[in-house]
């Protein structure tokens, strides 16, 4: 059974490995597109690694939906999403999938 902190740590390591960065440079507050210079193919790569590591599948554009939820929450448009899409948000999503009660 995963704990929230373990999930966050693991997601940070997955992101670092995919983007060839030192883990200490990947923070929960790091923004994928702005701080880490990730591209959409990297998000897919990270997604696939998350699926293998945690043993669940993203369904039906779930990442896009996650971004949409973010945009709605902050009442911003899609073009502002890069500002909001952080490693922590991705980790939150995994936490939500694995520990729905959290």
């Amino acid at each position: 059974m995963w704990k929230k902190e373990e999930i966050e740590e693991e997601v940070r390591h997955i992101v670092a490995k995919s983007l060839l960065l030192k883990p200490e440079l990947v923070l929960l507050s790091s923004r994928f597109f702005l701080d880490l210079e990730a591209e959409s193919i990297d998000i897919l790569d990270i997604r696939f690694a998350i699926e293998s590591t945690f043993g669940f599948k993203f369904q039906n554009d779930e990442i896009r939906e996650l971004l949409q939820v973010l945009a709605n929450e902050h009442q911003v448009t899609e073009k502002d999403i890069p500002e909001l899409f952080t490693v922590g948000r991705m980790a939150d999503f995994v936490v939500y999938k694995l520990i729905p009660s959290s």
Partner: peptide
């Protein structure tokens, strides 16, 4: 599945 950019800038994971 790929990324469209110069080969010189393609990263190992990509």
């Amino acid at each position: 599945l790929t990324t469209f950019k110069p080969l010189m800038r393609v990263r190992p994971n990509q």
